[in-house]
Amino acid sequence: MLVESILRSLNGLRFVPQRRRPGVTTGERRSPRRGRSLEFADYRDYTPGDDPRRVDWNVYARLERPYIKLYEDEEDLTVHVLLDSSPSMQWREENEQASPKWNCAAQLAMAMCYIALTSGDRLVIETSTKARFGPKRGATAISSFIEFIEREALPAEVADGRVPANRVTQVTHLNSWWKRYALDAKPGLCVIISDFLDPEGYVEGLNALGAGRLDVNILHTLSTAELDPEFSGDLRLRDIETAAAQDISLDDALITQYRRRLNQFTTELADFCRRRGGKYHLINTSESAEKIILRDLRKEGWII
């Protein structure tokens, strides 16, 4: 998990939403609604029923027509963090103590939550096991969030593939998860942390989130073994989620072909996300979370 010094360096940072979304309560984000803040926004014609106290009498004196003075409204921003906690996200080598991929994803999720909570946003986090944390406000929720993440960790024998994951847990597909989530989600900023390695795809789920007025931003987390596989020889690849086997004889040509296919996969996902106004960032989980957050995401305008 992120050390305290890193968390402190996240103080003062806040998410940059792509567009204004109506909030739930009064907050520090500009709302698309007109409200009661002190910042002037616009005029509109007086209509019967309007509060006469909001008529701008100076304008009436000059134009002899009543105009209502509108002010900006400031509401909170709901930040949705969707953390994929499927077995593929927690995969690790048999000889590894912990999954680097899951560690990275959890750290990123924690950082996202910390930024949201410390900047006064409303936080909701949900994992692919339908476990939900929030909605929460305020930095005091951080400690309980850590426990929430730790509960999502799979047993070691499942994470390293010794026991098929489908015997221990029910595998949730991304599309069904996100479509369900979009049904009752408040409009806001959505950060998805996932490897998107789902045979059923992700398009329907992302479309559903977009339709629920969520600005979808993607942190695509892939491990080094997925980005640059070092396997060779005659192998039987075993999918830790489905326990499906795939016989393969790896050589240079096949590795090259895999890299080409992976590049196509990430490019398609990035294009899909950006076409909908979202942000996309591909993460090698061997990189440090601090570097990803404080350098890469700030540089790409995720946070300021």
Binding site: W91, L197, L237
Partner: peptide, 8 residues
């Protein structure tokens, strides 16, 4: 060899 996913 266990892998995260055989999809790709």
């Amino acid at each position: 060899q266990s892998v995260s996913s055989t999809m790709l």
